[in-house]
Amino acid sequence: MDIFSFLVQTLNAVQYGLLLFLVASGLTLVFGIMGIINLAHGSFYMAGAYLAFGLTSATGNLLWAIVLGVPLAMAIGAALEALLFVHLYKRDHLEQVLLTYGLILIFEELRSILVGDDVHGVPMPDFLAGSIPLDDTLSYPVYRLAISVVCVGLAIGLYFLIQRTRLGMMIRAGSHDRDMVQSLGINIKLIYRVVFALGVVMAALGGMLAAPISSVAPNMGGQVLILSFVVVVVGGIGSVWGALIGALLIGFADTFGKVILPDFAGVMVYLVMAAVLLWRPEGLLGKG
């Protein structure tokens, strides 16, 4: 592998990992703070991609689709929390898994009724459609670079929100002692709603950003969900920064696995997960 193909693969790995992080961050936050295992989280990624498809068709531009899609995803997230997930906080994990698995089926059926079962594509914005030439034959698509930049921005924003704002302090405090937070006059239910909606928005944004480079298709949430769970477990359940490191690790394992050991590409990710868990059963940044 020469230096430029190595560079291309590295950029691909980072971009893929960062996209996974968008989905996994919400999964790990909702699990770490509210204690909910949400199998339907991949559906929010799918919903994002379909929102991108529908809204890009309507407005003619992916950027408009994102501007409209984010508040829509937030509203959907808040409504789902208020109507369904709020009832799961005190239930055991089996009940959570059953309800959220049922939700996947409902979401897929809704998608089928609303948009049908065809595979769709979403055009990328014109100004991001070019590529950067690296040598005579290799070039790197500007859009993929843009995804990475946006994801890094979102990761920094999430870091700032959780580590530097009062809302972030309340969120962290709420993951430790819900009663105490309430006794200080803070509405923990509202905090939970915000966290859930935030997780939905991050996953949906992942789907929106990915729409132009991967087809918008039925069941697209499934694969992402499984990989996101791998990321969450590798990073340490509940740890957002663990999820970031885990996502990048999985991004590299998957991308370079396909290049270096094409015959084993399918298992590379799981080998990495097994190796990490043998070394640190609680995950990279887990609390044990």
Binding site: M169, D179, M180, L184, K189
Partner: peptide
Amino acid sequence: ATHAIARRGIAYVPEGRGIFPNL
């Protein structure tokens, strides 16, 4: 709700203190 009661001017320091160790 507890937060509504607290917001009417009551602060409660519980047994065992209720520090947030992760903050």
